[in-house]
Design a protein around this nucleic acid. Structure first.
Lengths: 217, 217
DNA sequence: CTCAGTCATGACCACATGGTAAAATAAGCG
DNA sequence: CGCTTATTTTACCATGTGGTCATGACTGAG
């Protein structure tokens, strides 16, 4: 139980000021967008600062180095991805429902966090220098669990016997493509930008393909 | 009709010397690898030159600017991609055979040109600043033809009625992922590097999924 | 009011890097 | 050999940019 207020307040509570919170957010948003368009080295701190509405020096006040800012951007999207990355976390009773919701979740991420998703993708393409360790400790174990679950389903005869790993690779890639390769996708569809309807169509198609392709239901 | 030989030979034939050919090749190889790992801005000309075994100034002698070199790298992989990009070009009599070979071709590209594929991917992620026009004039029309072919198959009842565009997006993304996201894939599989067997498994899985998922055969 | 800590700006610099200019050397060819 | 063209090297520079330093302005709690 807390003591009387004036007691051992050695470390000042130093609450995150509202200004700091707001500015860090706008910096991260700006950084996501610029990093995703021009890459890490192709983006100048001054450009980010400008987009976030402040001076470069002020930006450095909030993020003491470019690398730290970059890692923060990566970390942000990773938290989102990890959270929805596991089959277990999906609502649904039957395997079909679970898989359906899994696909849906991943398309949603592409729809709502396209810039961050692109930064993540580039990082992976570059060989995941910053993320390798984190992926090993967080993503891989979660994937193992999911694989086991799928194998259980296969043993129970509710789906075809296939290589579960490649199933996940396929779902990851074909859902993320609506963020990462959106320029190619929208170009192919003859649109300036992807609409909600397009994401829905994607979800529907992928669900159909996976469920039927695995002989489920 | 040509006159006697010594007359108007203003433009010398100037055949591509063997040295030039060889050096340009090694430069492009080095550039592919470095661009794919560090991006355009993250790669110094001097680093490329070093990897190609020559001085920076000599590299500039062969490629007069960094941008020109980059476009050449892009152009190279694009030519390969475009060549195999169309369903029409696939061998095979039946729709099933054609689709199977299509998937196989695309996985082969990921297997054999991983670096170039990554450079291409990053370019698309960045919004395809250099490629937009080229994609519009070359890729989109080819895709349209393929879509029409698939629609014909659907009309003939040999496959389920689905959105053909998303089918192609799915095939593109899930085959390219074995090049672009190879670091994540190999990490997930617990390997240092992908083996031939992994590519074969991927092909087999994707083929199964697509053929069965579309109700073909 | 005041004053510590937060926020913001201007001046500046070290350094990497793309690119130029010119001179030197090697290769092909009559 | 002698001459032209192709290749390579040496020296150099202009620019962009990440980051430091010192200083000033603002703000809220006591």
């Amino acid at each position: 139980m807390p003591n009387s207020s004036e007691e051992i307040v050695i470390n000042k509570p130093r609450r995150r000021s509202r200004i700091r919170e707001a500015h860090e957010n706008s910096i991260i948003r700006a950084a996501e967008q610029l990093f995703s368009q021009n890459g890490y080295h192709g983006t100048a701190l001054e450009t980010i600062a400008e987009k976030a509405g402040m001076s470069k020096q002020n930006l450095i006040y909030y993020f003491s180095s470019k690398e730290i800012l970059y890692q923060r951007v990566l970390r942000n999207i990773l938290d989102i991805l990890i959270e929805k990355m596991t089959l277990m976390d999906q609502l649904g009773e039957t395997p079909t429902e679970i898989l359906t919701n899994y696909i849906k979740s991943k398309v949603e991420i592409s729809r709502h966090y396209p810039d961050a998703s692109k930064v993540f993708a580039i990082e992976i393409i570059n060989g995941a220098p910053y993320l390798k360790k984190y992926l090993q400790t967080h993503l891989t174990p979660a994937l193992e669990d999911d694989v086991k679950l799928v194998e259980k389903w296969m043993a129970e005869g509710v789906m075809d016997k296939i290589d579960p790993y490649h199933l996940f690779f396929m779902i990851w890639s074909s859902t993320q493509t609506y963020a990462d390769f959106s320029s190619q996708v929208s170009l192919s569809l003859g649109k300036e930008q992807l609409q909600d309807k397009d994401f829905d169509n994607a979800t529907e198609f992928l669900t159909h393909l996976v469920i039927k392709g695995l002989g489920m239901r």
